[in-house]
């Protein structure tokens, strides 16, 4: 039991979203009542398990947690937001919206409720309203990189690549060490036909995460595109021809080596990859 509590605490601290683990560990704790031995931490566990249970579709467990929290903290905005999420999970979007609205009327700075409201609009299929709500939210809570990521996703759904790229730049400034974000930015740039910049970003991905396959594919695609295209006008900013060839070679070599490693991939995908690389 102590170990389960410890794991749950670690998950809370790292903000990882592993609902299956949380429900598996948390359910016996709550069902047996052992959770109450954790004192003040008990309520954090209740909240954590409630959200995980909603993720897993275990409505009975979620309801149990939320009710326990409700009796302990009646009228708390944090609990009401959980109730709103529960309503969302059961498809009652309008009612959930009313709850979030009420929380925000009491305290306009409530971050959790304003974030839920944005997602509610998205779930209702109103992307442009969701975008404007999220832009308003980010104007105040500028440092929330998850918000910027979400906004980038919303813009991508609307095929607004320039705006999505802007959002990803903000994410890069807030979380510069995460190669996944660099990859996303690089792919947006590639879609915008900005191969020169995309190549640099793909390089950054591979630099941060050695032998990142998707990054290597990106380098290969950008390099071959740039090699085929006429030499660009502003030669100063562009990568030199030799460098491009070297990059292309490097990516090809690494990809073949990665797919060739024993047990790395199925035979069919290995063949497909080699074929693709040869065509490029």
């Amino acid at each position: 039991m102590v170990n389960a509590a410890k794991v749950l605490q670690d998950l809370r601290a790292s903000a990882e979203r592993k609902p299956d683990v949380v429900v598996r560990l948390g359910k016996p704790l709550i069902d047996s009542g052992a959770v109450l031995k954790l004192d003040a931490d008990a309520w954090l566990v209740y909240e954590q398990v409630a959200i995980a249970a909603l993720d897993m579709g275990d409505d009975a467990l979620a309801l149990k947690c939320i009710q326990a929290l409700e009796t302990k903290f009646p009228g708390s905005p944090r609990v009401r937001r959980l109730q709103g999420m529960q309503l969302e999970a059961s498809g009652k979007l309008a009612e959930a919206g009313l709850i979030y609205k009420a929380i925000l009327e009491e305290d306009e700075t409530n971050v959790l409720a304003s974030k839920r409201q944005v997602m509610l609009l998205r779930a209702m299929g109103l992307p442009s309203e969701a975008i404007s709500a999220l832009v308003k939210y980010l104007d105040i809570n500028y440092t929330d990189f998850e918000g910027w990521l979400q906004l980038a996703d919303l813009y991508l759904d609307e095929l607004m690549y320039a705006q999505a790229a802007f959002c990803m730049e903000e994410v890069l400034m807030l979380q510069p060490q995460n190669h996944i974000f660099h990859l996303k930015y690089a792919e947006i740039l590639y879609t915008q036909d900005n191969f020169q910049l995309a190549l640099k970003q793909f390089c950054r991905v591979v630099e941060l995460c050695r032998d990142h396959v998707r990054g290597l594919y990106g380098i290969k695609m950008c390099a071959s595109r740039l090699l085929k295209a006429a030499p660009s006008k502003d030669a100063a900013a562009a990568t030199s021809h030799e460098d491009l060839e070297a990059m292309d070679l490097l990516a090809t070599e690494r990809l073949i080596a990665l797919y060739g490693a024993p047990g790395a991939a199925a035979e069919s995908s290995k063949v497909a990859a080699t074929k693709w690389i040869e065509i490029q």
Binding site: A246, M247, L250
Partner: peptide, 16 residues
Amino acid sequence: GLENVETRLLVKYGKK
């Protein structure tokens, strides 16, 4: 920071 990232990458993989 990405001014010379290509060179850095080539150096990292021992190509330069």
